[in-house]
Amino acid sequence: MKQLLLILFLFTFNISSLSAQIIWSAEPTKSAQVSDFFKRLDTGNYPQDYCVSRGDEKGVPSSSAKIAQDPELGSIWKIHKPLNRKRAEFARFEGTVNALSPKEGDDLYISWQWKIDTLDGAKIDKEITVFQWKSASPHHQNYPLNLEYDGELTLNAFGANYKGKVSQSARRTVLWRKAVPQGEWVSFIVRIKVDKNDFGGIVQFWFNGVQQALDNKQSKLYQVKLSDDKKTAFHRTNDGKFVYPKWGAYNKKSCKYAVNTYYHDMKVGTSLDSVM
């Protein structure tokens, strides 16, 4: 009888583990190849990604990614974006070894540890994008969600632009804001339930292991809907041909900085427990 109970327990445990699991990760201890875990590194070396004048900036080195050693965490990813370069981002979960393609109805818990600094010690005081939940064109949102940093981190949601040329900034609502010093490791979990319906998707957010209250803190033409406890935002999270993540440093304001972004324990799970 005891053996039967043990077998039933192990069977139940294995089924539970399979239903709540890690479905993607990018572990630098296993490979130094960006393409093993990500679709690509976006370096900004193409005509539309200019800082000052159209085309590649003369004499500006390309953005790069490599494995570095952190005294506390060991092997980590380090992305470097040079001065006068607009972009340095890991793009998409779709590596040759470990791949994930988000689709309608998916419920994803995206988790990573992160810090940021500048090569010359300059203070970042202009809002640069450090994470995007991006949509492939043609799209109505461009990026349904992002994180931006200017000494403070903001989690932002962007409404759909169905009828014309409404600016991205006018469709932005700030869901969360917190001051974070440069050079300090912090952790994020973003839950995204992927849904193309207006207010059909779900967004939840954990900072340093603690779930955060969300609100329409700063908005113009668009606001998300919120649960009564403000722990859940209802928002359109699927857009364009498909959606995917981008991590790094990006946008015109980033051009004035030589930025390093660092990543550890990057993973996606099917439950909160799987990524905590």
Rank of each mutant, 00 (worst) to 15 (best):
G164L: 01
E57S: 07
W176Q: 07
Y143A: 03
T261P: 06
L153C: 03
D117R: 02
F93P: 02
K163C: 00
A233K: 00
V210G: 07
D106H: 09
S187C: 08
N161T: 08
L153E: 03
W247K: 07
Y244T: 01
L175E: 09
I76F: 08
S135Y: 01
K241Y: 12
Q211A: 00
Y149F: 11
V275G: 00
L272F: 08
E148Y: 10
R191P: 11
G59P: 06
K134Y: 10
F131A: 06
L41G: 00
F90W: 00
F199R: 02
W114S: 06
E184V: 12
V97Y: 13
K267C: 04
E127W: 12
G159N: 05
F205L: 09
Q21D: 14
Q33T: 09
G159Y: 03
K256H: 14
A233L: 13
Q218H: 13
V190E: 10
K252R: 15
F37D: 00
L73V: 04
A91L: 00
T232A: 01
D229V: 06
N142Q: 10
S17W: 08
Y50N: 09
S63N: 07
T232I: 14
V210L: 09
G164C: 03
W185Q: 05
G59M: 01
K253G: 06
Y109L: 08
S101F: 12
Q211V: 03
V166M: 04
G209Q: 09
I128H: 04
N251K: 14
W185S: 02
K196L: 10
S25P: 13
T29K: 12
S64G: 03
R177S: 11
F199L: 06
S19R: 14
S219N: 13
L214S: 02
I23Y: 03
L100Q: 07
V34K: 04
A91W: 00
I15M: 11
F11G: 13
K246M: 05
V186Y: 00
Q218V: 12
C255R: 04
E184Y: 09
N45Y: 13
H235N: 03
I110W: 01
H80S: 13
Q141T: 00
K267W: 01
I202H: 01
I76W: 06
L41F: 02
A122Y: 14
R172Q: 15
H80A: 14
